[in-house]
Design a protein around this nucleic acid. Structure first.
Length: 401
DNA sequence: TCTGGGGTCCTAGGACCC
DNA sequence: TCTGGGGTCCTAGGACCC
């Protein structure tokens, strides 16, 4: 039997949030292209969300890194320009990119807002090679949408992703089996997908500094030291990855919402008010997905950055705001030890499709009643916008203050 | 120095059952 | 009295990704 090599592309937007902001500004008549100056996209420092979300190439030359505090970025480059983020706008450009890719195949996996995998194995035109399509996509995106992408060309997802991460911006790179040794093995271990800052020192202690060092190590030794994860990174280092491009959208496995508070909260009532609004958002998204949750999880981060979480499995899956809130409140009570709280989060996990469980819910009158209330509120939200509906308690709170 | 928010997956220990 | 082994489920925490 002949094994057919898969034809995979990985499309990665260069400095996505910053590029998209630049394009949007130009479209709105601004003359300065923020891709050409030291600039970053950052969260609101006054709300304690001041981290770097994206950077221009010039900002990168100053050593500025994504995820670091804007304060650090200013130290590295005092005249850095900071722009705020806008997720609705990012979505618009992400969709525009996706629409172009759809002209080539329907086997597209939206790996994140700015990255897609494409499987062209069955869709490659007879007169074209995979690399030709990669160049065509790259140039079309630049000409039609105004921002640049890198495209990785390979026979599996891992190698395509590694390839798109080579020299940037506006480049196409191949990473076929015979190129692994020359193009990938020389790179530092930190460049390998899934190798993060916690595993780097552990690998270095094993005399592993480059991806090649890892590839040549005995697989059993890695499994001994890292378990399942050891096998994964050893296979990645050797260019092995049999995972499929997931082109049929999967249902979420969990839904969460968290906020860093504008200052550390110590007042239980204040914390519970935030908890309720988080639960409202989470349960609303759950209902929009037509799903029910079996597990509720509450997480807090203290002023000292210690993270604690508690979760509880429910007897009956639910999407009811009230039921989730009552559980979340209990979990918060267990967690809260009167230490000032910096962040609070709610997640639901263990999700299932609502339709699968409809029958068992019929005998639950309380749940049925709550469903009706939630549905009325959801409809009002859809009609008048999410902020239209405020719980009576919030209104009381406002009137008293 | 001052440190976001949304996810997925894995591990380890304890409870419980046969 | 001193005491198994395997399996599943639940929970807390952590690593990693963008």
């Amino acid at each position: 039997m002949i094994k057919i090599e898969r034809q995979i592309l990985h499309v990665d937007v260069n400095n996505a949030f910053l590029s998209w902001t630049a394009v949007e500004r130009l479209k709105n008549g601004e003359t300065l292209d923020i891709r050409t100056i030291p600039a970053i996209i950052g969260g609101d420092e006054s709300k304690r969300k001041g981290v770097v979300l994206a950077k221009s190439n010039i900002a990168k030359q100053f050593g500025i890194q994504t995820g670091e505090p804007i304060y650090f970025a200013r130290k590295k480059c005092p005249n850095i320009q900071v722009f705020s983020s806008n997720h609705a706008m990012y979505r618009k450009y992400s969709d525009a990119l996706y629409n172009i890719l759809c002209e080539y195949t329907d086997r597209i996996e939206r790996f994140s807002i700015d990255e897609c995998f494409m499987d062209l194995t069955l869709f490659l035109p007879k007169n074209k090679k995979l690399i030709d399509v990669a160049y065509e996509i790259k140039d079309r995106v630049k000409n039609e949408l105004g921002f640049t992408v890198n495209v990785g060309v390979a026979n599996n997802k891992l190698l395509a992703k590694m390839a798109s991460d080579f020299q940037k911006p506006d480049k196409v790179h191949t990473l076929y089996k015979e190129e692994i040794e020359t193009k990938m093995w020389c790179l530092p271990i930190s460049d390998l997908f899934m190798v993060g800052k916690k595993s780097i020192p552990k690998l270095q202690r094993m005399q592993i500094k480059t991806i090649g060092d890892l590839a040549r190590k005995d697989e059993r030794e890695l499994i001994k030291n890292f378990g399942k994860f050891g096998r994964v990174i050893w296979e990645y280092a050797n260019g092995i990855d049999n995972s499929e491009v997931v082109y049929i959208e999967e249902k979420p496995k969990g839904i969460g919402n968290s906020v860093t508070l504008p200052y550390d909260y110590s007042n239980v009532e204040e914390i519970e008010t935030v908890l309720l609004s988080l639960v409202e958002q989470v349960s609303y998204r759950l209902r929009k997905e037509n799903m029910l949750a079996k597990t509720v999880n509450v997480q807090i981060k203290t002023n000292e950055f210690k993270v604690y979480s508690h979760q509880k499995k429910l007897d009956t899956p639910t999407s009811s705001t009230k039921i989730i809130y009552m559980e979340a409140k209990k979990l918060l009570e267990e967690l809260y030890k009167s230490v000032p709280i910096r962040l609070i989060g709610v997640r639901v996990d263990n999700l299932c499709e609502k339709d699968e469980l409809q029958i068992s819910l019929f005998d639950n009158k309380q749940e049925e009643k709550q469903n009706k209330i939630d549905n009325v509120l959801d409809n009002l939200k859809e009609k008048y916008g999410y902020n239209f509906i405020k719980r009576a308690r919030d209104v009381e709170h406002k009137n008293n203050s």
